[in-house]
Design a binder for these strands. Structure first.
Lengths: 211, 211
DNA sequence: GTCTATAACTAGATAGAC
DNA sequence: GTCTATCTAGTTATAGAC
């Protein structure tokens, strides 16, 4: 995704990246409070003291995971949208990106929404600010599509929340060895969402009380 | 929802119910591992030892919350479906029930899916068995609707997961004092989902590569 | 940059008085 | 049914050797 070669000298990951990767896996599986620093250290074949050379606290590790993930989400979303034309295909690109990301980088994505509550208030504010920017892109696309007459959406905020919940949910059940590849899942989600927003599809049911 | 009066002698809740309610709120806010037994006791103006008169362990409290919630979900879903006729309106009733439940009983619903990983293996098996029954109702309705020609769904399992993720997401953002009442949100979700499943709405876009 | 050793504290849980 | 008191083990984090 980055256009520049990594700054890391060799093909080796730097120590802090190794730590973040192991922490992501453990926080995803057992949660932040359910994972002790000792467990993380053991996983990395280190002593706990060694971790504190790289990070000042367990909280700093959590924040680094969420902050990086949110950066990658925002960056990827903007690229995906920029590469498409018109609200409809831009929204399709956005949904496709979101779903593929939540499948391919499942653990980071999962931790980034399940452990918001484990952040300190100051860290939470910083992460929420980025998450809000991310959601605003979706709201903007919905609004643009409504103005352009391609979407029929009674409530932009609610619809954006519904779409994002649905797509984010992929991170809770996706399995690498599973039946469907990330792109295949994304394709289906794009179709379902497009159909539900389409201003051209006629609702043949009456408007009276039902079900 | 129950047709019989509660078994509790007075209007008072029994002690174990008080404990479960407080625990639900705390587990929702801070997570199971992020909530100490001491914190729970303090919230209830009790000493920790007193809690152990009512429950053998913290884990038993968590399991009781999830087990009861799953029972209420399954029971409510079956009633909602039984009260409707035909796959289409039954699915609408199921979605409506699910969304309203996840708004009205937000904390229990949230804990029931966020703390699955904090259950012991034996307890997890019992909860998952009930959750699978719940999801099977949705899959069954989708299958029936496809056979009846009212739904157009390429992948029942994926679609059921997508619908449930979307509706369950309500528990992450719903606020009692918010703009929309549970029923209003449910109404919107029912419409969006119906539209996305509708076999009668024509997809006017071509089938070639897009976005 | 990783180690040993340990400080300072909190966790879940129990014994037994009332 | 709730309390005081306490046990054992685990928690995050640090000091200082190598």
């Amino acid at each position: 995704m980055a256009t520049l070669a990594p700054v890391t000298p060799k093909g080796d990951a730097v120590a802090s990246d190794r730590i973040l990767r192991a922490a992501t896996a453990l926080f995803c599986e057992r949660g932040y409070h359910g994972t002790s620093v000792r467990t993380l250290a053991r996983e990395l074949r280190l002593e706990t003291a060694s971790l504190y050379y790289h990070f000042h606290s367990k909280q700093e590790i959590l924040f680094a995971i969420l902050d990086r993930t949110l950066d990658d989400l925002l960056d990827g979303l903007r690229r995906a949208v920029a590469a498409a034309d018109g609200a409809e295909s831009q929204l399709r690109a956005a949904v496709r990106f979101h779903v593929v990301f939540h499948a391919r980088r499942r653990q980071e994505a999962f931790v980034s929404h399940s452990e918001l509550r484990s952040l300190t208030p100051a860290n939470l504010r910083r992460v929420i600010a980025k998450r809000d920017q991310y959601e605003d892109v979706f709201r903007g696309l919905l609004t643009a599509g409504i103005r352009g007459g391609v979407f029929q959406v009674p409530d932009v905020k609610l619809t954006a929340a519904a779409i994002l919940s649905m797509c984010t949910g992929v991170a809770t059940w996706f399995s690498e060895g599973g039946r469907l590849a990330p792109e295949a899942i994304a394709g289906r989600y794009v179709e379902v969402i497009s159909k539900s927003l389409d201003a051209r599809s006629v609702d043949r049911r009456g408007k009276g009380p039902r079900s």
